[in-house]
Computed example of a mutant assay.
Amino acid sequence: MTRQFPTPIFALLLTLMLLPAPALVAETHYITDQIEVTLRSGESTRNKILRMLPSGTAVEVLSQNSDSGYSRVRINGREGYILTRQLQREPSARSQLQSMRERIEELQASPNKLQSRLAELQGDYAQLQQQHQQLQQQHRQATDELQRIEQTAANAVRIERERQQLQQQVDQLSSNREQLLQQNSQLQKQSQQRWFLIGAGVLVGGILLGLILPHLRLRRRSSWDRL
């Protein structure tokens, strides 16, 4: 007895067998523009190659020869010849692309740098604000101290004025004292002179009385004798 496959399964297997084999997955690649040009010692391919210059290298063009198709150039102080068709006035596409990539990376990094700079500035601002508050407090303290000094100076001026007034009074009293001392000295001298004169007068009077009284007694006796 012959074995038969179910019709649906057989049809599915037949369909799978008839399908083409799957193609290999292709990857896209690009031809690089990284090329090198020769810097030669002369204006032909027979001249010696001095060095290889990568694409995008900047050179200084000294002269161009349209007949030979070469240009005399200088790079890093060294001169040589390069095919004129291998030179262009604008940087290479690779160099421009690299510059654009660097610019994009710089722009992408700018927000982070700006945020970092902002945080730094905020920190500086907070520090400056704290310093400002400290300076304000120091200013208030200095103002209070200045007011105390001014008050002390005013008191010192007042005290000095009072001292000068007292000194003037002392000088005046000293002058008055000297005058009184001089007057007392003069009065004392005058008193001594007066007492001396009084004493001398008393002495002279006593002497005169001593001389006169005996005569008076004699006269009285004579008068009594006559009676």
Rank of each mutant, 00 (worst) to 15 (best):
F5W: 06
F5P: 08
P6F: 03
L12A: 14
L12V: 06
L13Y: 00
L14S: 10
L18E: 07
L19F: 05
L19D: 00
L19V: 06
L19A: 09
P22K: 02
V25Q: 03
H29E: 10
H29Q: 06
I31G: 05
D33M: 14
Q34H: 09
Q34S: 13
R40A: 10
R40V: 06
E43D: 14
T45M: 12
R46H: 12
L53E: 05
S55C: 12
V59W: 03
N65T: 02
D67P: 00
S68Q: 04
Y70F: 15
Y70C: 03
R74E: 13
E79C: 08
T84Y: 01
Q88T: 05
A93G: 13
A93C: 03
R94K: 08
L97Y: 03
E105Q: 04
E106W: 07
Q108S: 10
Q108T: 04
A109R: 10
N112L: 08
Q115I: 08
A119D: 09
E120P: 00
L121K: 04
Q122L: 02
Y125T: 08
Y125E: 01
A126H: 09
Q127R: 08
Q129H: 06
H132T: 07
H132Y: 10
Q133C: 11
Q133I: 02
Q134N: 03
Q134H: 12
Q137M: 03
R140T: 11
E145A: 15
L146R: 15
L146A: 10
Q147T: 09
Q147S: 11
R148H: 14
I149M: 12
E150L: 14
E150N: 13
R158Y: 11
R161Q: 13
E162A: 13
E162I: 14
R163N: 14
Q165C: 06
L166C: 12
Q168A: 10
Q169G: 14
Q169V: 12
S175I: 01
R177Y: 15
Q179V: 11
L180E: 06
L181T: 09
N184V: 09
K189D: 06
Q190E: 07
Q190H: 01
S191V: 07
R194H: 05
F196T: 03
L197C: 03
I198G: 03
G199I: 03
V202I: 11
V204K: 01
G206P: 00
R217A: 07
S223N: 09
